[in-house]
């Protein structure tokens, strides 16, 4: 999932200090699962904003709504009939949803209510860890399904570096050395000899480096 973190209320308040009405807009997908921007977080933020505005002596209409997704136009259409009641939207979706909401409603100011952090998985309740950077050209087949681009602090394709100590990365004892994980996996798979294959120089043009990315599937287009 896309993992996000709630922004501090103060920061959100700084964004909406001029508005007279604001819709707090949640998303039922990733941000719900990582408890940053689902229906519940919408309720909490809206309640906090209402109490803050009251204390400031401001009459601000704070609305609440949570959509199935903010990254698909058909769900964004569901707020078409209510959006006119608001000057601004605080979106608790990931950066995609925030931008897509703004694209759909060009006359509305849309502010981020979360910091979108990474694509990751839940290690346990309340702990998320990054697993993919979307480089656009997956190399997991060669690395025992452990991604060095994401999990090595130096994204070394031929690691580990000399800083790997007792399975940990040089940047922190709390970070696992991706290459230790890769080697452990290769060993478990009986493929340790694969370690000696030099990983070729990567074509980063499918990554962020190549500019904003777009996928067109002619077989699906209508």
């Amino acid at each position: 999932m896309i993992v996000a973190e709630r922004k501090p209320i103060e920061e959100i308040l700084g964004q909406v200090k001029q508005v007279r009405s604001v819709l707090v807009l949640g998303c039922n997908e990733c941000v719900t699962v990582c408890e940053a921007g689902g229906k519940k977080e919408v309720g909490v933020l809206a309640s906090a904003l209402r109490m803050l505005f009251l204390q400031q002596g401001r009459e601000v209409n704070v609305g609440e709504r949570t959509l199935e997704r903010q990254c698909d136009t058909e769900y964004l259409e569901e707020i078409r009939d209510m959006i006119d009641a608001f000057d601004a939207v605080v979106s608790l979706a990931c950066g995609v949803g925030i931008q897509f909401t703004a694209e759909r409603y060009p006359s509305k100011a849309v502010y981020p209510g979360v910091n979108t952090c990474f694509m990751g998985a839940a290690l346990e309740r309340g702990v998320w860890s990054e697993r993919c950077q979307g480089c656009g050209s997956c190399i997991l087949a060669a690395t025992g399904a452990v991604c060095p681009i994401t999990r090595c602090a130096k994204r070394l394709l031929n690691g580990p570096c000399g800083g790997s100590t007792a399975g940990k990365c040089e940047i922190s004892k709390d970070v696992e050395c991706a290459w230790q994980l890769i080697i452990d996996r290769l060993k478990a798979l009986g493929r340790l000899e694969d370690y000696e294959r030099l990983s070729p120089i990567k074509d980063w043009s499918t990554d962020r480096a190549g500019g904003p990315r777009k996928i067109i599937r002619e077989d699906l287009r209508s």
């Binding site: 031929n158 580990p160 100590t165 399975g167 080697i183 340790l192």
Partner: peptide, 17 residues
Amino acid sequence: ADPFEIRVPRLAKKVAA
């Protein structure tokens, strides 16, 4: 550095490179 078992294979890789 760790893991020790790949320290020599790693050298071999550098030589190959």
